[in-house]
Design a protein around this nucleic acid. Structure first.
Lengths: 207, 207
DNA sequence: GTCAACTGAGTGATGATTCATTCAGTTGTA
DNA sequence: TACAACTGAATGAATCATCACTCAGTTGAC
C-alpha cells in the first residue's frame, strides 16, 4: 500500500506532465531571477529542481543553454499566442492594442520570468545579438507588419518609419515592464498597456 | 626640448587633466563594453589602462566599484548638462526636445559608454535597484517635472499620469539607444530624438 | 633618505563540468 | 511466475581552470 503510493509519487514527478527538463527550466528561471545569471550556480539550480548536479547536464549542454532555452521557449509561445489573438481582428489599432496587452499580461503573470526577460537577458551584448537574431526580431516584425497595414489603410501617418515606430512602441512597453519589476509597490502591469496605446496611437494617427 | 615634451606628456597622462583614476575608468568602459562586465578580468582592465593589476586597487575598492563609478560619474554629468541646457528655455515641449536630443547625443558620441549604459548596467536586479536609487531616479524626476509643468501650462493633457508618461518617453529613447548598439549598420543616433519627440508630443498634447 | 606611487607574482576560493558508479525498472527465457 | 541479464537515468564527489584581490618589494621625485 504505502509502497505503491511512493511509487506513484515517484512516477508522477518523473514521467508525468511535468518532465524533468521543464522542471529544471522552471527552477532555473526562479534562481536566475533571484540571484542573476552570473551569480547563479548550476548547483543552485539543481537543488531548486530537487535534482542532482549532473542531471542538469543530461538535459542541457551548459548553463548558458539553460538561459537560451528559457528565452526560446517563452518567446515562441508568446509569438504564437499573439498571432492567434489577432487572427480575426481587422482594425490595426485594435491588433496593436491586443498585442500590447498580451505582452504585459504575460510578463505580469510571472515575475520571475519577467525578471529574466527584462534583466538577465539584457546583460551581455553577446546574448542581445543572439537573441535579437532569434525570436526577438520576429516579434518586432510582427508589430511592424501591423503598423504598415495601418499605414496602408490610412489609420496611421504615412510619413513615419514603421521600423522606428515599432521600436518606440516596444521601448515604451519594455520600460513599463522593467519599472514594474524594480518598483516595490505592487500594481497590475497589464493595464499599463492601455495608457501606452492611448499615447502611441494618438501620436501616430493620421490627421 | 624633446625631453621636456616627453616629461610634459608624462605629466599630462599622470597628473594632468587625465588622472590615473580617469584613465582606469575609461579603460574599464572599453573592456566592459567589449567583453561584458562578468567576463572582464580586472587584469584586462589593468592591461588596457597600461597599469599593474594592483594599481587598480589603489583607486577602486573592487571591480564592482569601477562599474558604479562609471555610472555615477556619467549620470551626474548628464544631469548637470541637461539642467544647464534647459535653464533659459520656457516652452516645456522644447525642454523635452532638448533633453531627448542630449540623451541620444551623449550615448551616440561614445559607443563603449553606450554599451555599458544600455547593456552592462542592466544585467542584474541588484545593480538596477541600486542605480535607480541613485542618479537614474533623478533623471526621471527631471523629465517628470518638465512634463508636469507642461500640464499646468495646458500644453499636455491633464488626465495623463506624468510618471507614466515619463516612463514612456524614457523607454522609447532607451530602445533607440539599445537598437543602435545592436544594429550593425551605423547611423546617427541623435536625430532619432526628433522622431520620438514628434510622436510623443503629438500623443500627449492637449486637444 | 624618505615617502608615495606603483608593481606583479602569488594565494585562496570558487564553481562549471565530468564520469565512475548505482539501481529502479524492463526484457527475454523457461 | 521467477529470475538473470540488461538498460540508461540519475547521482554527487572529484577535478581543474579561473580570477579577484593582497602584499612584499621596487622605483623615482625631491
Amino acid at each position: 500500500m504505502i509502497h505503491s503510493v511512493v511509487i506513484m509519487a515517484k512516477r508522477a514527478s518523473r514521467n508525468g506532465t511535468t518532465g524533468k527538463r521543464e522542471l529544471i527550466l522552471r527552477a532555473a528561471t526562479r534562481v536566475f531571477a533571484r540571484n542573476g545569471y552570473f551569480n547563479s550556480k548550476v548547483a543552485d539550480i539543481a537543488r531548486a529542481a530537487d535534482v542532482a548536479d549532473g542531471t542538469v547536464y543530461l538535459y542541457f549542454k551548459s548553463k548558458e543553454e539553460i538561459l537560451h532555452s528559457i528565452f526560446d521557449q517563452n518567446m515562441a509561445a508568446a509569438i504564437a499566442s499573439g498571432r492567434e489573438l489577432i487572427a480575426n481582428v481587422k482594425d490595426p489599432r485594435e491588433k496593436l492594442r491586443r498585442i500590447a496587452k498580451l505582452h504585459l499580461e504575460r510578463l505580469g503573470a510571472d515575475r520571475d520570468l519577467a525578471v529574466v526577460f527584462q534583466v538577465e537577458l539584457r546583460g551581455s551584448t553577446k546574448f542581445m545579438e543572439e537573441f535579437s537574431a532569434a525570436g526577438f526580431a520576429e516579434y518586432l516584425n510582427l508589430l511592424r507588419t501591423i503598423f504598415e497595414e495601418g499605414q496602408r489603410s490610412g489609420a496611421f501617418r504615412k510619413n513615419l518609419s514603421a521600423k522606428v515606430m515599432t521600436k518606440i512602441l516596444f521601448g515604451a512597453l519594455d520600460e513599463m515592464a522593467t519599472n514594474w519589476i524594480i518598483s516595490q509597490r505592487s500594481y497590475k502591469l497589464e493595464p499599463m498597456a492601455d495608457v501606452v496605446m492611448d499615447v502611441f496611437l494618438n501620436g501616430v494617427s493620421a490627421e
